[in-house]
């Protein structure tokens, strides 16, 4: 399967990674190579095999549905590139 530049651009968009127009064909070629490698999986008979969700057959650990953390606004915001008045600050989202 060959990946074209249009598909590469779409994937980059979905992944929210800016890729320059000039780099798209090299990227598409890399995807083609990697997906070619992955395509070996089509040789395997997986009829009736359930997709694995967990290597250990266990139910995920659950805790009581009670508040057990909080009141840490300063710690939560400590690493933010931009925070104002107790909030994360981002560029305008809605006009």
């Amino acid at each position: 399967m060959s990946i074209d530049t249009q598909t590469a651009a779409r994937v980059a968009k979905l992944a929210r990674i800016k890729v320059d127009e000039a780099d798209l064909s090299a990227l598409a070629q890399e995807f083609t190579n990697i997906l070619g490698f992955i395509e070996q999986l089509n040789e395997v008979d997986v009829e009736g095999v359930e997709p694995m969700t967990s290597v250990t057959p266990q139910r995920l650990f659950r805790r009581e549905d009670v508040v057990n953390d909080g009141n840490q606004q300063a710690a939560v915001l400590a690493n933010a590139p931009d925070s104002r008045e107790g909030f994360f600050a981002v560029p305008m989202v809605v006009e």
Binding site: I38, L41, N42, V44, V46, V49, E50, P51, M52, T53, V55
Partner: peptide
């Protein structure tokens, strides 16, 4: 085609 197939193969590897 990719993700679920890979998870099935993973089950066979295990």
């Amino acid at each position: 085609a990719y993700y679920n197939r890979a998870r099935r193969v993973r089950a066979l590897i295990k």
